[in-house]
Amino acid sequence: MAKITLATIWLDSCSGCHMSFLDIDEFLIDLAGQVEILFSPLVDTKSFPDHVDVSLVEGAVGSESDREKVLTIRDRSGILVSFGDCAVTANVPGMRNRYPVADVLARAYAENACPAAAISRDTLFFQEVPALCPQARPVHEFVPVDIFLTGCPPPPEAILYLFSELLAGRRPNMNGRTRFGA
């Protein structure tokens, strides 16, 4: 049987969902035999492949660069999985949505800096990193999503179940295996 090709990515998130993925422990070895990871923070690839069977997208869409990535991934993936609460609901990254971006940056990098940094508000807008969108939004508001895997992070058992179903050629039904905030 041919291996299924997999890509994983994190956008606006804490990478906790990927950690939970690693928490499936010894099953990783089984999985490695059946899945070929083409693109991931876990492997060293620079550009997204032309086609993968399954993509796990962790994190909300919080910047213009996230938006472009998500469009590309949708284009080049068979099955797109919204991986974890940030991708599904915008979750914690979405908590900034109530405030203007400038206020959020000032709060994080000036007011709460320790020791109190002598940074003025203007210098907070770096040219080198992608600019934040006014709001961080869930992935499915930008592209069609095939499978929603909720949880912060999704429990390893749910991730394992997802893969075992996908490998068996079935569309997994995640009902009851995980929930918002799990």
Partner: peptide, 22 residues
């Protein structure tokens, strides 16, 4: 609220979040 979402099998929210400031 969370339990109801599980009970009714809500995997994601189809309508845009309003993010009010409260």
């Amino acid at each position: 609220l969370q339990n109801l979402a599980v009970e009714l099998g809500i995997s994601h929210v189809r309508y845009p979040y309003l993010y009010p400031r409260l």
